[in-house]
Simulated assay, not measured.
Amino acid sequence: MYEERLARLPGALLWTRTDPLVPAAAPTRVLPDGCIDLIWVDGELMVAGPDTVAQLSPASPGRHYAGIRFRPGLGPEVFGVPAYELVNRRVPLAELWPAGRVRRLTGEVSAAHDRGHALERIAGDALAGREPDPLTRALAVDLRKGVSVADAAGAAGLSERQLLRRCRQAFGYGPKTLMRIIRFGRALDAARIGTPYATVAIENGYADQAHFARDVKALAGVSLRGLLTQEAG
């Protein structure tokens, strides 16, 4: 079972997941979304970096997860490392922060009644006294709107090469990859509520339905129909 709710921390979402009590259950397919997560699982704090393709998370009967997901660009400000170091990786928080500090925080989250709020406090403390980078926020907004790379660079006062470097630091990959992943997520949301696939493709900037289907297969690792069937089951 998966549930999510808005965090009080701007730009963050709290979520929980419990694996089904069924032996040999299918793994959970985690789709790329440009985000970085801080996750508590099995008494350990982990960081899930921004993905370029779907990741399969093996199921363990009854295993419980609690997480906080940071919008594209916010995670590096929380953890103090460039996003490109975390692409397609799952790393213990102790690899990024001092081990003693992580042991203390892990104990606090494990003992908390609401682990999501405990994770939120960790992120809030990490950001205390710091203002989010306005350039990163502006870039994320422009790229989500589908602004061209050249126009996004011009609006930020950067060359395209400088934009690429800033995007890799903030998001883990270049602007075109981030735009592709954002489009993928937006299109999937439309397909999930029953919008015809051809309409989804046209309204989200794909050349046609076949182009949309190829992109889903490349990013999710399964066909669009297969993905929606898995999610529904």
Rank of each mutant, 00 (worst) to 15 (best):
P175A: 14
P50T: 12
G146H: 02
A207F: 03
G62E: 08
S60M: 09
A94H: 04
P92M: 05
A190R: 12
G49C: 12
K176M: 06
L158M: 14
A123Q: 02
V141A: 13
H117S: 11
Q230D: 12
V102P: 00
V87S: 08
A155S: 09
A126P: 04
S159F: 03
S110N: 06
L143T: 11
Q230V: 11
T195Q: 14
L6P: 08
G124Q: 14
P23F: 12
V30W: 11
A152G: 10
Q209G: 14
R29Y: 11
G62P: 01
Y65V: 12
G80Q: 05
R71V: 14
Y84R: 12
E203C: 03
A187W: 05
D51Q: 13
L21Y: 07
A24L: 10
V109F: 01
Q55S: 06
P92N: 07
T199A: 14
A198V: 08
A201K: 08
D51K: 15
R168E: 15
I36L: 15
A153L: 05
I181C: 02
E231K: 08
H113D: 09
V22F: 09
D215A: 10
R101Y: 13
G62K: 03
I202C: 00
E120Y: 05
R166H: 14
R103D: 15
V216S: 09
L143M: 09
L31C: 01
A123V: 06
R89W: 11
L163M: 14
R89N: 14
A201V: 06
A232Q: 12
L9P: 10
P50S: 05
W15E: 06
G43D: 07
E108D: 07
I36W: 05
T177W: 13
A99T: 07
E95P: 03
A112P: 00
R90P: 00
K145V: 08
L164V: 07
A7N: 01
T177G: 05
P134V: 10
W97Y: 04
Y173H: 14
T195F: 11
A140P: 01
R137P: 00
A25E: 09
L31M: 04
G34Q: 05
D208L: 00
R161P: 02
R130Q: 13
G11P: 02
L178S: 06
D51F: 14
G75N: 03
A198W: 06
A126D: 04
Q55P: 00
D19R: 02
V200R: 10
R166A: 15
P175W: 13
V53R: 15
A207E: 13
L56H: 09
R130F: 03
H113S: 05
